[in-house]
């Protein structure tokens, strides 16, 4: 579903934020992307969803090149940033309709999906209010609902659990599992190692822009906890870099 080959990105002549990254996310995967602050997680995610322009490497989604066929890639992808800045002048329902219309969702699909996911995240009552009145968590929920409205083949999330209440976090985990069971893939960054350990079938660890470990969760952690592996690799990586 998602293939990243030799991807590198530098900002304005500085050292590389991401250096020669290779990674493959297959249909049905819940792929956790782990790393410390500034490791290059968000840069990678933004390049995947077409927010960030890049020169080096190749990224393909569902067989389409992000650089050469961006529209085809975006049609099957949904992205939720770590701090979802939404159009504050719109109401929640206006925003959902806006996003669904951009993706060509039919009215029957809209009605079914809006109702289902808004009820699941307990946001239905607030959909008539302006987004400017929403809390951070409510905005996050709205961004998730809008992302799910077109049932993406690839769902890319940046720190999706930050700001969500425990019930919403539980709901999101269930929806992620359900989506993957239907054949979609999920690629998300997180700092919460327990969540990654329990939820993801695959994990990649990035440090200083370089991938230092990747593969099936069981293989990466072996007989240790993911936290121990992460700290061990991070310290080792520090010596290496």
């Amino acid at each position: 579903m998602l293939t990243i080959r030799n991807f590198s990105k530098s900002y304005k002549g500085d050292k590389k934020a991401v250096d020669n990254l290779n990674l493959t996310v297959e249909a049905g995967d819940i792929y956790g992307f782990i790393g410390h602050n500034g490791a290059g997680k968000t840069t990678t995610l933004k390049a995947v969803v077409g927010v960030l322009d890049f020169e080096e490497g190749e990224i393909t989604i569902d067989g389409h090149s992000v650089k050469k066929e961006p529209i085809a890639c975006k049609q099957v992808t949904a992205y939720i940033p770590d701090n979802p800045e939404l159009y504050e002048h719109l109401t929640g329902i206006q925003y959902l309709n806006f996003i669904a219309d951009l993706y060509g969702v039919t009215k029957e699909e809209k009605e079914e999906r809006f109702r289902r996911y808004a009820d699941a995240f307990e946001l239905t009552g607030s959909l008539g209010d302006l987004i400017s009145s929403y809390s951070h968590g409510m905005k996050q929920k709205l961004a998730i609902i809008s992302a799910l409205s077109h049932q993406p083949k690839l769902l890319v999330l940046d720190e999706p659990f930050v700001g969500l209440d425990p019930v919403a976090a539980h709901t999101l985990k269930a929806i992620m599992a359900e989506l993957c069971a239907k054949g979609s893939a999920i690629f998300f960054s997180t700092h919460v190692l327990e969540v990654a350990e329990k939820l993801c079938n695959k994990i990649a660890i990035i440090r200083g822009g370089k991938l230092i470990a990747s593969g099936n969760t069981e293989e990466v952690r072996g007989n240790k906890s993911l936290e121990d592996v992460f700290i061990e690799l991070a310290e080792k990586g520090e010596k290496d870099f």
Binding site: Q94, D101, L102, V105, T106, E111, F114, A118, L127, G128
Partner: peptide, 30 residues
């Protein structure tokens, strides 16, 4: 302080719109 009602119900039917119309409405509301 932003006024909220928190009483939305899915009573109105959603309509399908084109991407251009969606962008146009969004710009106009802005």
């Amino acid at each position: 302080t932003v006024r909220t009602r928190s009483d939305y119900r899915f009573e109105e039917k959603q309509e399908k719109g084109t991407p251009f119309l969606a962008l146009y409405r969004k710009e106009f509301r802005r």
